[in-house]
Simulated assay, not measured.
Amino acid sequence: MKSIILASQSPRRKQLLEWAEVPFEVVTQSTDETYPAGMALPEIPVHIAREKALAVKKMVQHAFHAQHAKETILAADTLVMLGDKVIGKPKDRDDAVAILTELAGNTHLVITGVVILHAGGEIAFQDTTEVSFHPLTQEQIEYYVDTYQPYDKAGAYAIQEWIGVTGIARINGDFYNVMGLPVSRVVQALEQLGGE
């Protein structure tokens, strides 16, 4: 498999690509993570991932000119939804505690949008996983937030950390999608590109 550009600073996405033995280098460019009013919620992470990928493509082409015009660029964005409410990254400790209090005892959706830009165009898809938390005590929530400080995570938690191991009752869908990348679908798409 050819090396790709990962347009993400997420340590979880890097780790998942390493586990899948996908060769990559990280190149990021800050982007606006807003989205058009009225956009259907499941389309939002694909839209944001596309903006990330296009920003990196533009930067790479400008910096390295034509020699990198055919680079494959992978970007992703993860969204947490409880009912019709989008839950982003917590602003601070109080916000993280409030988010987890809301998620406790409930089922929410984790939607990751993926965009792969390649010489022939674009592959875009989203993957959805249902996650159900056990009821959690205030003590458990505060322990997790104070110990793990999940301020860079949509939904204020990481499934592979203590709260996921002890607090999640069940999931329906791809576990790795909740970590931030439906890596098996990504690998299938990259292998398909390699065969073209």
Rank of each mutant, 00 (worst) to 15 (best):
P135Y: 07
L103N: 08
Y151E: 01
Q61I: 15
L82C: 10
L16S: 09
K2G: 15
D77N: 05
A154Q: 14
F125R: 05
H62P: 12
G167M: 00
L6A: 04
L16G: 05
A53P: 09
V97W: 09
G164R: 00
R13E: 03
T107K: 02
A124C: 09
L79C: 07
F125P: 02
H65D: 11
Q160K: 00
A156K: 04
A169M: 14
L79F: 06
V187P: 07
P150Q: 03
I159V: 06
I99F: 01
E102D: 14
K14I: 14
T147A: 15
T72M: 12
R50I: 07
L82V: 04
I123L: 13
H134E: 12
L103I: 07
T101L: 01
I116Q: 02
K57M: 05
Q192H: 15
L17K: 02
Y143M: 11
A189C: 06
T101G: 02
Q15K: 11
G155F: 08
N177P: 00
F125T: 02
G105W: 10
E25C: 05
I44Q: 00
V110G: 09
I141V: 06
F175D: 07
R50F: 04
E25Y: 05
L117W: 09
E71Q: 12
P23Y: 06
L109A: 12
A66T: 12
N106C: 14
D32W: 00
A189I: 10
T129K: 01
I5Y: 04
G38R: 09
I99P: 02
I141S: 07
Q15Y: 14
N177L: 02
E130T: 15
I141T: 07
A98Q: 07
A63L: 14
M81L: 11
H47S: 04
H62G: 14
W19L: 15
L16V: 07
